[in-house]
């Protein structure tokens, strides 16, 4: 396994420009994760707001039921199965070019369910005096939610959201199931060509670790910036 490390590195990265395969895989992973995170935030925020509104106003109960079904089904089934259903059933095995986007959509919808629970908890944690203060100034409910409640809720749940997205980034490594060459799949391809397992897989693990560390660092920066208003 450890023999001929220089040779392995050469075969894995340099021979036939294989590093390009890895690089393309990395870009696919980042793109899918990026789209999925944005989708996750948008879907998650909308579902969270819908759920909170239904509870608060007692109106549009059907919307609450739909949201509940969504989070229950998504959180109760494996993401790989969701990915396969999205690709093979809903999109009827889309073209190779579209496959990464189908994957991003599946991961975004998946992430949205978890994010909605996190954001909902964040909204519930905001003192109801905040909503009342906004309403007493004549602000409509939706503007109060957007300008007063959500920014505070978002700030409170940022660490939890960060965790969700770290999980998401790593979960995209199953994209190979729908024939998308992400980072993991790229490493697999190289491994099957060179018959070296050590360098491709360890390198891939290190790259994921690097992405997650970078993401964590950026999140800490953002948290610090948002914590400005807590200064005493």
């Amino acid at each position: 396994m450890f023999e001929d490390i220089p040779g392995q590195i050469y075969r894995t990265l340099i021979q036939d420009n294989r590093w390009l395969v890895l690089m393309d895989g990395l870009l696919v992973t980042l793109m899918v994760a990026g789209i999925a995170i944005v989708l996750g935030i948008v879907i998650g925020a909308l579902v969270a707001i819908a759920k909170v509104n239904v509870v608060y106003s007692g109106r549009m109960k059907w919307l609450g039921v739909i949201c509940e079904i969504y989070t229950t089904v998504i959180r109760g089934t494996p993401v790989v199965v969701q990915l396969l259903i999205m690709y093979f059933i809903i999109f009827g095995a889309a073209s190779d070019k579209m496959a990464p986007y189908v994957g991003a959509l599946a991961f975004g919808i998946n992430s949205g369910a978890y994010v909605s629970e996190v954001i909902r908890a964040g909204i519930m944690s905001i003192d109801r005096g905040q909503m009342e203060a906004g309403r007493s100034l004549g602000l409509p409910r939706n503007i109060t939610m957007r300008s007063i409640i959500l920014p505070q809720a978002f700030k409170n749940v940022l660490p939890a959201l960060g965790n969700e997205f770290i999980v998401l980034i790593k979960e995209t490594s199953v994209l190979g199931f729908i024939a998308v060459t992400d980072l993991t799949m790229a490493a697999q391809l190289i491994r099957s060509r060179t018959f070296d397992a050590f360098i491709p897989l360890i390198l891939t693990a290190l790259i994921y670790l690097g992405i997650v560390l970078l993401f964590t660092w950026a999140l800490k920066k953002l948290e610090k910036k948002l914590a400005e208003s807590d200064a005493r």
Partner: peptide, 14 residues
């Protein structure tokens, strides 16, 4: 047109 002041201030902390 009706200002309201609360016991707990309810300023927007952010």
């Amino acid at each position: 047109k009706m200002g309201m002041v609360f016991q707990q201030f309810n300023l927007f902390p952010h």
